[in-house]
Every structure is written in structure tokens, then in C-alpha cells.
Computed example of a mutant assay.
Amino acid sequence: MPDTALIVIDMINTYEHKDAELLLPSVREALPAMRHLVHRTREAGIEVIYVNDNFGRWRSHHDELLQTALKGPHADLVEPIRPDDDSLFVVKARHSIFYQTPLEYLLGMHGINRIILVGQVTEQCVLYSALDAHIRHLTSVVPPDAVAHIHRDLADAALQMMERNMDVEICASNDVRLKR
């Protein structure tokens, strides 16, 4: 059983928030690398786990979130990265993928101690999730070409902090080793 999982953060999105216009160009740029890495991961038989905001819709579930995003104005950014029938899905309410979610338990049940983080936003959810993974003694990988940002300077600083302070492996998506 592989000890690695790919975690796709907040890509099921309608982009109806205040920073969307700043985020969209970066999402478009990062999407091909994300999509390719998801494809490689699935082919290798490694878990793909989607962890996504619920956008304050406390009655929503993953199918509803996906259908809402696919009906939105930026469905072209959701369709290529959508979960397949084998993907696992965790709904979150805050920035970190771990904060008050069952993700830590899920990873433990699957014997996963190494995570690859892709998605958005580098200087927010990806950074906080990498910190929470570090606190939990998980090994993390973040490919800069497969994460989107709102502010490039803050994203660059976040990647630097992840690498220096949290021992996150920073490498291009094509260089990500899927199995150790």
C-alpha cells in the first residue's frame, strides 16, 4: 500500500469571492500541472483526496459543491480537475485541510504519512495546511507549478517558509516522486 496521497485543495470553486479576479490567472497557469499530476497519481494507484471549502453552505455535500461549481462561470477550471468515482472528499470550513476535519483520521486509516499538496491558494490554504501537516509529523511536497496564488510575492515567501521551516519538499510537478 502506498504511503503517499495527493491532496487537491479548494479546486471545486465558483470563484465568487473578493480575490477571484487576482486568483484566476494563476489558476489557469497552474491547472495543466495539477491535472497532469492528478492523472499520474491515479495511474500509479495512489489516493487522490479532495479537501474543499463548503462556502458557508452547511447543508452541502461534495456532489452539490461540484454541481454548483460546474454550473458557474468558471466551470472550465473545475471540469479538468474534478474528482472521479474513486476520489476521496473532505469538506472543510477554514483554511487548513486539517482544522476540524476528519482528514488526519482518514490518512491514518490509509497508512498515509506523505502528502502532495496542489490547488489553491499558496499563501493561504496551502501554507496553513503544510504547517498543520508538519505539526502532525507528515512529510509534505508542494510543486510550485501546481499551486495557484493571489499575490505572487506572498506565494514565493510562503513556499520559502514551507521549505525552510517545515521541511516541505518544493519541486516541479514533473519531478514529484509518487512512491518512496
Results as ranks from 00 to 15, higher is better:
R40L: 08
V48H: 09
A33W: 06
H36K: 14
R57S: 06
L37M: 05
E43N: 11
R59T: 07
W58T: 03
T41K: 06
S60H: 02
D53V: 00
V48K: 08
T41I: 06
F55D: 15
A44M: 11
S60Q: 04
L37V: 05
R35C: 13
E47H: 14
Y50M: 06
R57I: 01
R40V: 01
R35H: 13
V51T: 11
D53E: 14
H39W: 12
W58Y: 14
A33N: 13
R42Q: 06
G56I: 01
H61I: 00
T41P: 09
Y50W: 12
R40Y: 03
H61K: 11
Y50V: 09
S60Y: 00
F55S: 08
I49D: 04
R35A: 13
L31N: 07
E43I: 01
R40M: 04
F55W: 15
G56V: 01
H36V: 07
R40E: 09
A33V: 01
N52Y: 02
N54D: 12
H61C: 05
A44P: 01
F55L: 03
V48E: 11
V51Y: 02
A33G: 06
I46K: 08
P32F: 04
M34H: 05
R35W: 00
G56K: 05
H61V: 00
G56N: 07
R57W: 13
H61N: 15
I46R: 10
M34F: 03
R59M: 01
I49F: 08
P32E: 10
A44V: 03
V48L: 12
E47I: 00
